[in-house]
Amino acid sequence: MGQFTDPCKTKTRTSAHEDQCDLYYECFNGQPVLQECPNGLVYHGKRTQGLFGVCDYDFMVDCSTRQARSYAQNLDQPNPCDYKSGIIGDITYCDRYWECVVGNPQLYDCPNGLVFIGRNRGIAEGCDYPWRGSYCDDKQLANPPLSTEHCDWLYGIFGHETSCTRYWTCWNGTASEQFCIGGLLYNEESHSCDWPQNVAGCQKHPLCKDDPNANVPLGKSCERYWACQGGYPRLQRCPATLVFDKRSRRCVNPPTEDCEAPTTTTAAPEDYVDDDFRGAAPPPPRRRRPSSSLSQGPPDQGSFLPNNALPFRPSSPSESRPQSPPLPQGANFREAPIDKAVPLK
């Protein structure tokens, strides 16, 4: 058994435990505090050479004089080199895993905020969000959170500080603002956008403070109104020929106490303006179908001929239609569609 050494008098501000190789003392505020190395590691004593601070693999440290281990160290941690995948989770910490590297087990940490779920799974290095499964039910976290602006951990999905329709996705400490659409709100429990009735304790908009899912009149407008969805208003319009009734707070057939039947007028093409398509051009005119070739000349061929074709230009009015025999006189006759055919009475 070794002897106690005051860590506050050492260069590294740490010292080895008397009889356990995975324990050590560290100086805090002038007092020695007992610390424990991560599972599978032992006290090394050199901060610049250890795997995690002053802790390193046991095969890198001589523990012949301090062979005792804590309970966590005595557990049977499987060797990843004995498995086909070459990787296995730590039996004590859910955010750590062991991987076989050149025949030797190596201990790794998941990115901050993630936990180990298996090789080629999760969002990064076999690690995933802890709320997607029961990965930490019988384990604990080895690493504390590393927080940045809008991010409680370096990786994760977190609620917005002032809005229920927004949230933050954090990747390596960088936050990206996201939005819930379709009247949904961010649910802190499921870490996803959810129906308003499933999200409790969310702040409300002043227009929807009385009822988070009611319809609210828009001033004196007879066609538009506010539709509250989960405490947030969305501008809506009644269907054609209907008006918004401020008493029943729904679209009804006119007239009501405040609104008459909507009037519809046909606007001239140059005055064509719509509330939703303001400034759009009027609809293009429809092309007329050409009349029968027996009553009119040939159609305008300029738009139907290739670019290198010559347009049809008759030299005289008599050439604008084919020659036909003179028609018989009388009101019961019509043009014969076939040459030399006898008209019917």
Rank of each mutant, 00 (worst) to 15 (best):
A214F: 05
A214T: 00
A214L: 00
A214K: 05
V216N: 13
V216K: 12
P217E: 05
L218V: 02
L218D: 11
K220Q: 09
S221C: 13
S221L: 10
S221Q: 11
C222V: 04
C222M: 01
E223G: 03
E223R: 15
R224C: 03
Y225K: 10
Y225G: 01
Y225C: 05
Y225N: 02
W226D: 11
W226P: 02
A227P: 03
A227D: 12
C228L: 06
Q229E: 13
Y232D: 04
Y232H: 07
P233A: 08
R234I: 06
R234L: 03
L235K: 10
L235D: 05
L235H: 05
R237C: 01
C238D: 11
P239Q: 10
A240N: 06
A240C: 04
T241K: 15
T241V: 06
T241A: 05
L242C: 06
V243R: 00
V243Q: 00
F244W: 08
D245F: 10
D245Y: 03
R247G: 03
R247A: 14
R247P: 02
R247M: 09
S248E: 02
R249Y: 07
R249I: 00
C251G: 14
N253A: 15
N253S: 15
N253G: 12
P254K: 07
P254E: 11
P254L: 12
P254S: 11
